[in-house]
Structure formats: structure tokens, C-alpha cells
């Protein structure tokens, strides 16, 4: 028992679960509607957009990189899909396919810049972010798109099961949430049960060693950025499904929030660490902070402030603990 507890204490996820439980009780005490199934389903649906991208961000971070451009990629994919649906038509599958394709290509370009040309990921993706977004708005004039096909809005309404409430309204688990969950499952499978996934951890742990033992670093790095792009593309469609309009400025600017959520979930910016479950919990934490504020009638202007506090507190505690640990064991002797 004690051993099991001590083992649990090593995982960031454990602390997150405790914090989330504590916050949930606090919010629910003030406003019981927080802990209702309806509210939960609603939250899960609206955070699917962030959730899908967080898995891509997670893989990029584990590999030791960073991607700032994914919000721009999502925007580009969303916009092109909207144009595709209006001009050519198709169905929901073709919409996702086009988005995935566009996203993968744009992500692959990031992968190329990072892997082949050794451009620091943060610089490379800041550059491509500007390039992608700037070109999109230049080419399209930044016009909003409202007249999406009927089948598109119909798809967004599909629910896996529906519950009727007493006052004759209904709610249920949205198919959009299921896309997020499917992406999480894919993420877990890739990271835990494929060679590729273990390579991503290995590269993030020690890139030079990864090259030496014969891991295909190029393929893995190109994969994480392409996969990030692919998920950003899918997230773009999800965003369109959720709001049923395509506004080119609605996504850009959210990228740092998602990175923050994934880092909260235990992923390290130096690479080699992180889990799908952790990324999920990080996102849940940010979601309930925001939702809880609404339910507790705290003015929304406080949100960013709280997010900042949460990031600094959680990262500060882990970093400082790490520093003390280093000092105590006197590992001043640095490996050559």
C-alpha cells in the first residue's frame, strides 16, 4: 500500500487529479450545476477542439521540440475545407480528409525545417505561423464564411446517446467529443505500443544517442510535426462544427494556452516526458477553472490571471523541487 502510494506520488498526474477533485468540490459547493452530466458533456464537447490539438502538441514536446504554428495551420485547414465544401461539396469524411491533408503538408514543412535544416523549432514555427496565416488572409481577404452545408451542421448535432430532462430539453454525448477521444486513443497507441512512439521518447531524452543507436530520427521528427499538422487540420474542422461559421481570426492566439495545458500535464519542454492522460488532465484543469469561474459568477476578466497563476504555481513547484534535488545530490559533475 505504502509503496503504491509512493509510486503514485512520483506522477504529475496524481497531483492533477487531486487538484481537479478539490476544485470540483469547491465549485460544486457553490453551484451544484457544475457536477451535472449535462455540464460535463457540454465541457467535453467545447474542449474537443483544444483536446485534439493537445495530443499533437504533446508529441512535439516529448520529441524535444515545440510548435507555435499549429493554430495557424488549423485556421488554414479550416478555411480551405470551408471553401472546398462550398465550391465542390462532398461529405463529412471528405471534409476531414481535406483538412487532414492540408494540415499534414503544412506540418511536414515544419518538420523539414526542424530536422533537415536544424532550425530551432521555436524560430521555425514562429516563421511558418506568420507565413501560413499571412498568406491565408492575404489570399482570402479574411472574409468570414457563414453558409456551410446543411449536412455539415447536421453532423455536429449527432449525439451518441441522448438524455431527456424533466423540462423537456435534451442533452447527450456529442460525436465531436468522440473524435477527441479517438485521437487520444490513437495517441496512447502510438506512444506506448509502436516503435515510433518509443523513438519519440528516446529522441526527446537524448537526440545524439538516438542517432547513434540507429533510431530513425528523421522519420520520427518529421512524423511529430506532420501529425501535429494533421491533428490541427482535424481540429480546424471541429472548430467549424462547433461554431458553424469560419472566422479566420478565431483560433490564432490560442496556441500558448494549449501548450500551457500540456505542460501542466507533466510534459517537459526539454523533451522525453509526458503522457496522453496528463495532457488530458492539464486541459481539464484549465477547463474547469474557466467553467468554474462562470458558474461562480467571477467576472471573465479574471480568467487569464488565473491561468497565469496556475501555470506559474505548478511549473514553479516542479522546477524548484528539481533544483533542490540537484543541489542535495551534488550532481555538479556533468556528463561529457
Amino acid at each position: 500500500m505504502e509503496i503504491a502510494l509512493r509510486k503514485l506520488a512520483r506522477y504529475t498526474e496524481t497531483y492533477l487529479v487531486i487538484i481537479i477533485a478539490f476544485l470540483s468540490i469547491l465549485i460544486a459547493a457553490k453551484n451544484p450545476s457544475f457536477l451535472t452530466l449535462e455540464n460535463m458533456f457540454d465541457l467535453l464537447k467545447s474542449y474537443s477542439f483544444f483536446g485534439v490539438m493537445s495530443i499533437g502538441v504533446l508529441m512535439v514536446l516529448i520529441s524535444g521540440g515545440i510548435d507555435i504554428s499549429f493554430a495557424a495551420v488549423a485556421t488554414v485547414a479550416e478555411y480551405l475545407v470551408a471553401l472546398f465544401m462550398m465550391r465542390i461539396g462532398g461529405n463529412i469524411f471528405s471534409a476531414f480528409a481535406v483538412a487532414a491533408l492540408v494540415g499534414s503538408v503544412l506540418g511536414y514543412i515544419n518538420g523539414l525545417l526542424v530536422n533537415r535544416f536544424r532550425i530551432p523549432p521555436i524560430i521555425a514555427t514562429i516563421a511558418t505561423m506568420n507565413a501560413y496565416y499571412g498568406l491565408l488572409i492575404f489570399a482570402t481577404g479574411g472574409k468570414w464564411i457563414y453558409d456551410l452545408p446543411i449536412w455539415f451542421s447536421d453532423f455536429a448535432e449527432i449525439q451518441l446517446f441522448t438524455i431527456h430532462t424533466a423540462n423537456d430539453s435534451t442533452y447527450g454525448l456529442s460525436i465531436i467529443t468522440m473524435i477527441w477521444f479517438a485521437v487520444m486513443v490513437a495517441g496512447i497507441l502510438i506512444l506506448r505500443f509502436t516503435m515510433l512512439g518509443r523513438s519519440i521518447y528516446a529522441i526527446g531524452g537524448d537526440r545524439k544517442s538516438a542517432l547513434r543507436v540507429g533510431l530513425n530520427v528523421r522519420r520520427a521528427e518529421e512524423f511529430v510535426y506532420s501529425f501535429m499538422g494533421l491533428l490541427a487540420g482535424i481540429a480546424g474542422v471541429i472548430q467549424a462544427l462547433l461554431v458553424q461559421t469560419v472566422a479566420p481570426n478565431s483560433i490564432v492566439g490560442k496556441e500558448l494556452n494549449i501548450i500551457a495545458a500540456v505542460v501542466l500535464g507533466g510534459a517537459s519542454l526539454t523533451g522525453g516526458k509526458g503522457s496522453v492522460f496528463g495532457a488530458f488532465l492539464g486541459l481539464v484543469l484549465l477547463a474547469i477553472v474557466k467553467n468554474g469561474m462562470t458558474l461562480m459568477a467571477i467576472p471573465p476578466v479574471w480568467y487569464e490571471f488565473f491561468v497565469g497563476c496556475v501555470i506559474l504555481l505548478s511549473v514553479g513547484i516542479t522546477s524548484y523541487k528539481g533544483k533542490l534535488e540537484k543541489r542535495r545530490t551534488a550532481t555538479i559533475l556533468v556528463k561529457a
Binding site: F193, T194, M195, L196, R198, Y201, A202, G204, G205, D206, K208, S209, A210, R212, V213, G214, L215, G272, K273
Partner: peptide, 26 residues
């Protein structure tokens, strides 16, 4: 050239996993 963030088992098995060129493992 070991990976400090991976377990002993993973570090040892890594090379043979690579050379077997398999994509998945149990």
C-alpha cells in the same frame, strides 16, 4: 548513449526492436 528517461528494459530492448524493423510490439 543511454536514454535516462526510459526504463532499463526499454533501453536494453531498443536495439533489437530497431533491427527487427517491426512497427508494433506487445
Amino acid at each position: 548513449s543511454l536514454f535516462h528517461n526510459l526504463t532499463v528494459a526499454e533501453n536494453i530492448a531498443l536495439s533489437s526492436m530497431i533491427s527487427s524493423r517491426r512497427k508494433f510490439f506487445a
